[in-house]
Simulated assay, not measured.
Amino acid sequence: DLAYCHDIIAPKQPSTPTNFKFAEPNDGLVKNNMDKLTYYAMSNSEKLDRIGAYLEQKLGRDLQRRRIGNVFISMDALDQLLVACHSHSLNLFVESFLKMVQKLLESDDPDLQVLATQSFVKFANIEEDNPSYHRRYDFFVSKFSAMCHCGKDNENIKTKIRNAGLRGLQGVVRKTVSDDLQVNIWESIHMDKMVPSLLFNMHNPNFMSVDLESPKDEEHPVYLSEVVFRDLVCRASYGNIKSVLKPALIHYDNHKLWVPSDFVVKCFKIIMYSVQ
């Protein structure tokens, strides 16, 4: 379990609780102890990097030893700290956080990949006081795009991973597109992976909705990819829309989608409507 975190991070702080466990493997996070750790982190923001480094090492060991329950606990703790601690020191903590998310995404376990994506999406929705302009998202664009093409035989697992990939791509866009000083997500190196991944999931001739009002359909990659595609186009400025159009046209050519033209026409309608 995640034990004695304060004792390791802040042994010289007599006013803080030491030698306590903020997690129990069978019960998840212990709320009272997690609250203490959160309060300590918020009161001593300069320690966030050491907290992150410790949790990163702990998660790495638990992954190697296949202590999956502890991995979930670690990410839960990280998510709560990330949301609670809006400070100038958050950048140092985020670096450890993103390394842990990357480790989980590199795992072969679908549940860990989904867990990592959920944490990344939570991070993407946080407005940082001082965002890091040297931070790169190349790995996440590549990995989430690859997840969108998951071809596992198990239909449920395939759908779960594809949906995670789609949500991950949406998270990358939300995190980067609103700030001109962030990584330029509209560069072809990113769009050439993202746009085909979205169109690949949008175009599924075999998908037949049983009930158009069914909430289950909203969780299908066909629907989710269209939502993400609309979101992407809506966020594109007039000068950036060509970054979406070029890989889209190449995708239509490569997959011979011009005839019949129903899908291509649908995509152009989405683009035209979204850029109005």
Rank of each mutant, 00 (worst) to 15 (best):
Q118N: 12
S119I: 03
G151V: 00
W186P: 13
Y39Q: 13
F120Y: 14
M202W: 13
L82P: 05
D108G: 03
V233C: 12
N130S: 12
S178L: 15
F263S: 05
D217R: 10
D217H: 10
S142P: 00
H88A: 13
F72M: 05
H86T: 03
E95Q: 12
I250F: 06
D1N: 13
V183H: 13
N33I: 03
S274K: 04
D79A: 09
S43V: 07
F22V: 09
Y273D: 09
K175P: 12
D129K: 08
L90F: 08
Q57Y: 14
E187G: 10
K152F: 00
Q276I: 06
V222W: 01
N240W: 06
A164S: 15
P260C: 02
P110Q: 01
Y137S: 10
Y4Q: 11
P215W: 01
S197A: 15
G28R: 05
L37D: 02
T159A: 02
S15I: 04
F139E: 02
R230I: 11
N19S: 12
P17S: 11
N130L: 09
V210Q: 13
T117I: 03
V244F: 03
L81M: 13
H203W: 14
D35P: 02
P260M: 01
K246Y: 05
V233G: 09
Y39L: 14
V265P: 00
W186N: 09
F207R: 07
Y54H: 15
K160N: 03
K47N: 12
N154H: 13
Q113L: 03
N154Q: 14
F123S: 00
Q118I: 07
D7E: 10
E127N: 11
A84K: 11
Q64G: 10
L48M: 11
K256S: 10
F268D: 03
K12S: 13
L181N: 15
V177S: 14
P110M: 08
Y238I: 08
L224M: 08
L224Q: 08
S119Y: 05
N254I: 02
A53G: 11
G60Q: 12
F120N: 01
T18K: 11
K246P: 04
M272F: 12
I157A: 00
R167D: 13
S89F: 08
F120L: 14
A84Q: 04
V265H: 05
S43W: 03
R136W: 00
K193Y: 04
F263Y: 06
Q170E: 15
F268M: 11
V195R: 05
E128G: 01
P260H: 04
L29H: 04
L63K: 02
D109V: 15
M34A: 15
R162W: 01
L169W: 03
D76W: 07
D76Y: 06
L2P: 04
M42F: 09
I270T: 09
H255M: 04
S243F: 02
V121H: 06
R50D: 15
R65P: 02
S178Y: 10
G52E: 06
Y223M: 12
D108M: 07
M100G: 14
V195D: 06
S237Y: 08
R61M: 12
S243H: 07
F200E: 08
E128Y: 07
K31L: 11
M75S: 05
L98V: 04
P110A: 08
S243W: 00
S261Y: 08
S15M: 10
L257D: 03
D211Y: 05
P260W: 03
T159W: 00
R135V: 10
F207H: 14
G168M: 01
P25G: 01
